[in-house]
Design a protein around this nucleic acid. Structure first.
Lengths: 143, 143
DNA sequence: CTACGTGCAAACGGTTTGCAATTCC
DNA sequence: GGAATTGCAAACCGTTTGCACGTAG
């Protein structure tokens, strides 16, 4: 199944690619950094190189399998999420790291309207809301 | 004048700080990277160290004098803008680098509503719209 | 068989930091 | 004069790349 997805993307089925895709599909944490993916795979006794993880993630990104985010909170480290659901934006707790995904039609519409007003053709956008959730104590490991 | 602003922020008036603040105030380009600021000052025969530029910008940021942005387009390089106007978001042309600032009450309201719905207290947010403007040819150096 | 993918180690680029010299008040 | 600030060079850290080896089809 992960296999078919790779083929569909024009990527040869290789062990590292399969492992990374499967990890992303099975992980509780929807947003992982390259480093996290790398370490998790090592713990599972799958030996991949960190460079490969980066290469594969970049390929996944251009194939549309994955989305790369640069959250301000995580000091420059990119995180990746499977691009399986419909478009959504993010709400991030700066205290506990919790990430909530949401969709808002009104905001999307306004973005289009604004773009039109300035003669822009939007290809991409990102909206990150940073704040504190009310109960950070019970979501310390909920990233 | 820039002087008072530094004092107000609790920062000792030093040459590098004054130069950087004045440059940001006088520059046509509202969004500049540390490197750009550094080079511009060198051209003006003000000798500052790049490290100082970074340090000062960080101090300015925590003092609220400046806002730091990480536009996806500029491959990891942060850009800084004076925090003088009211809050605004950004529309960025990926072809010519043009940056348009806009304000939208409806989007702001929706953000608050969404935050409330999830029990979040928003401290900060960023909304970047990436796209292509209709006439990129005449704004090549309009960053 | 051969092109493509991988692991490793070294390079990269933006940013930060330790330290001795300098500047501000 | 003494604390704060600077410039320089070296460290840093996430990411990318060159290259010799390995693997999928």
């Amino acid at each position: 199944m992960s296999n078919t997805e790779l083929k569909k993307a024009g990527l040869k089925t290789t062990l590292p690619r399969l492992r990374i895709l499967q990890l992303l599909e099975s992980s509780k944490t929807r947003h992982m950094s390259a480093e996290e993916i790398y370490k998790t795979l090592l713990e599972l006794d799958e030996d991949v190189g960190l460079a490969t993880v980066y290469r594969v993630l970049t390929q996944f990104e251009t194939a549309g399998i994955v989305i790369r985010h640069h959250f301000q909170s995580s000091s420059g480290t990119a995180v990746f999420e499977l691009n399986e659901r419909s478009h959504h934006d993010h709400l991030l707790c700066t205290d506990c790291g919790k990430v909530i995904e949401f969709e808002d039609k009104i905001i999307e519409e306004r973005q289009q309207a604004i773009a039109k007003q300035y003669g822009f053709d939007i290809t991409d956008h990102c909206l990150y809301l940073y704040g504190r959730c009310q109960h950070p104590e019970n979501c310390e490991h909920n990233k």
